[in-house]
């Protein structure tokens, strides 16, 4: 806890209570819907992927939104976590939940170890160069997994216990909430402010004594840790891992969620992740046209987000806020 949070206003407490209520309400609704058997098979099969994508999007949001560095290798860390966790749980012989917990811990830690090794040299690069190098590392990880014996190569790693299906929703949900909580708290802490300072102006940040390299690496490692966790859940949801599922298209998919959610906005990332996971399923009736529709929606949303119309709305809102602040001051 930092010093500024000591003086919380009632409005802030209200927000926290509201968030807790939303969390519980979502959980209650999901449990009723799942237990009541109100969902079709398609819908139940998409619950856990939704959770996984939320974790991935929120963890990438820390990097892209708050640290302001574009990385295209998130799927690489997800695959490291997935393979590490799956190999471990295949080896262990314990109750499913214990196996899963150990697997997740291992997956997350191994993914973050890789993040340290990759991040230390790579984070010196900036902008598009960093994007392409992280993309390169994602592809290197994928082709190395593809060529190794013990990972099953291109045929894939099978026989993973499917512990993380919708029947174990509670377990997965807890981890989703933990991910969101930890990242949201990090962002609003002293370290989080240092991270956003690096994003806004790294030269100024360095000048006031923020260790830019250390905070960049820290954000990178934390983000990779949660990507690893999501990977382990993914492995135990689908039961079979193939290197081809972790190519740069997966990284881009996660990036799209973060950008559509509004960069540097955790709530937005969560909502975008859920919508973008549901969208292909909802559009299933449109069969052949769904990916086409998806691409059109994507382009249209980006054009709208930067249109004069939207900018006018934002400006109006900002003016209103400024007026309120002025009133409070008087």
């Amino acid at each position: 806890m930092n010093k500024t949070s000591a003086g919380k206003t009632p409005a802030k407490y209200g927000k926290i209570v509201l968030n807790i209520l939303i969390t519980l309400a979502v959980y209650a609704v999901m449990m009723v819907v799942i237990q009541g058997g109100m969902l079709s098979r398609q819908m139940t099969s998409i619950i856990i992927p939704c959770c996984i994508n939320v974790m991935l999007a929120v963890s990438l949001c820390l990097l892209v939104g708050y640290l302001g560095e574009l990385t295209l290798g998130h799927a690489g860390f997800m695959s490291i976590g997935a393979y590490a966790g799956a190999l471990l749980t295949n080896y262990l012989d314990m109750p499913p939940v214990a196996e899963l917990l150990i697997g997740m811990l291992a997956g997350g830690i191994i993914a973050s170890v890789f993040a340290v090794v990759i991040g230390l040299p790579v984070l010196r690069l900036k902008g598009d160069y960093l994007a392409i190098v992280t993309l390169g590392f994602g592809e290197i990880i994928r082709s190395v997994i593809n060529s190794l014996e013990f990972t099953g190569g291109a045929k894939g790693l099978s026989g993973i216990g499917t512990y993380a299906t919708y029947k174990n929703f509670t377990f997965v949900y807890i981890f989703v909430i933990l991910t969101i909580l930890l990242i949201a708290n990090l962002v609003h802490s002293r370290h989080g402010r240092a991270i956003t300072a690096v994003r806004d102006n790294y030269i100024a940040a360095e000048a006031i004594g923020i260790h830019v390299g250390r905070f960049k690496t820290m954000a990178f490692v934390i983000s990779a840790f949660f990507a690893g966790l999501a990977g382990v859940i993914y492995a135990h949801n689908v039961g079979i891992l193939k290197p081809a599922n972790f190519d740069y298209n997966k990284s881009i998919e996660i990036l799209v969620m973060v950008v559509l959610g509004g960069m540097g906005n955790i709530k937005g990332s969560i909502i975008a992740a859920i919508i973008l996971t549901l969208l292909p399923e909802v559009l299933r009736s449109a069969a052949d046209y769904r990916m086409l529709l998806y691409s059109i929606v994507l382009i249209a949303m980006m054009l709208f987000n930067n249109s004069r119309f939207k900018l006018a709305i934002v400006e109006k809102r900002n003016l209103k806020k400024a007026a309120e602040i002025q009133k409070e001051g008087e």
């Binding site: 892209v64 574009l70 799209v256 950008v259 559509l260 691409s295 994507l298 980006m302 054009l303």
Partner: peptide, 13 residues
């Protein structure tokens, strides 16, 4: 980044 995502959208399209 907005342009990048749009380009990805065009690619999918």
């Amino acid at each position: 980044l907005a342009v990048l995502i749009t380009a990805i959208g065009v690619s999918y399209f």
